[in-house]
Amino acid sequence: MELAWYALLGLFFASYLVLAGYDYGVGLSLAGNADPGRRRAALNAVGPFFLGNEVWLVAAVGILFGAFPVLEGELLSGFYPIVLGALAGVILVTAGVQLRSRPAHERVRARWDRVVVVGSTLAALGWGALLAGLLQGVPRHADGHIAGLTHLLTPFVAAAALATVALVAVHGATFLTLRLPAADAAGAGRLARRLVPVAIAAVGAATVVGLLSARVRETAQRPALGVLLPVALVAALLVARVALARRRPGVAFAATGAALALPVVLVGATLWPYALVSTVDSGASLTVADAAASGPTLRLLGWLALPLVPALLGFQLMCWWVFRGRTDGRAPVYW
């Protein structure tokens, strides 16, 4: 039961990173784009999916609260500044994308676009740092609380956060290659291809820092899976690079998407059966089973989720299907 819920939580968070990941990636791409028309075209490529993407985060936190209340409290308050940063980023992107076209002046719009860039960066940094923080363990004491915040200030957290920004940037550029009108897609494709080596270098750097960190080595319950993570990431990025070169943006997008989903899966698996591994007192580590809500709550939510999750996926699929294909002059422009 707990495993099923943990998997569902992972599914929602990973989907959030994949889907909102390209929102943030597209947001980052605005930084290097001086032409107002092309900036707006990029945001409208995300268009109908934007609201539906972000809500995976809301649902993930809902599941976290409903099914893993203890983990919710410890995770969010134990990673306070990181969560704060990510949250501020999410809010800036939400407001920026939806409001940037309300004023008619190009200068005001450009200012909003900068808000989107900052927000995208913060969000990517924050979620990357959160995953890295899980992987390096937390100072959880016997009283069940995580003490202090300085445990977050490590080179590994910083390197992983930067690597996540790089992954998100590649993902966003690949999405644009898939979605913009064919004439504009080539430019996005070139950008994506140029970003791939940067992302590989960033992942490599994070890996080296992680392997050197004693905390990370001790926290990993299944080190083999931990090592598999960077290998799989690099493989996915290489696949994306080849697919972009062969003008198969669909394949490339699947690969960059996998690169954002894999960290969630592999971090979860590396730590299993723990959700939070304590660095100060091995008895104070929090297992997934202990973090879960009690039986009646999980059963209630389970009966609800059984019909609901397929329905949720169905409506998201409907959205992707209705708005599939490249954008063109026929689609309304709103963002």
């Binding site: 809301v58 649902a59 936190v61 809902g62 599941i63 609260f65 409903g66 099914a67 209340p69 919710e72 809500a293 709550t297 209630l300 939510l301 609800l304 989720a305 609901l308 999750v309 949720l312």
Partner: peptide, 10 residues
């Protein structure tokens, strides 16, 4: 947590 989780999903 239960009603909150239901809210986010439903």
């Amino acid at each position: 947590g239960a009603p909150l989780a239901i809210e986010t999903l439903v």
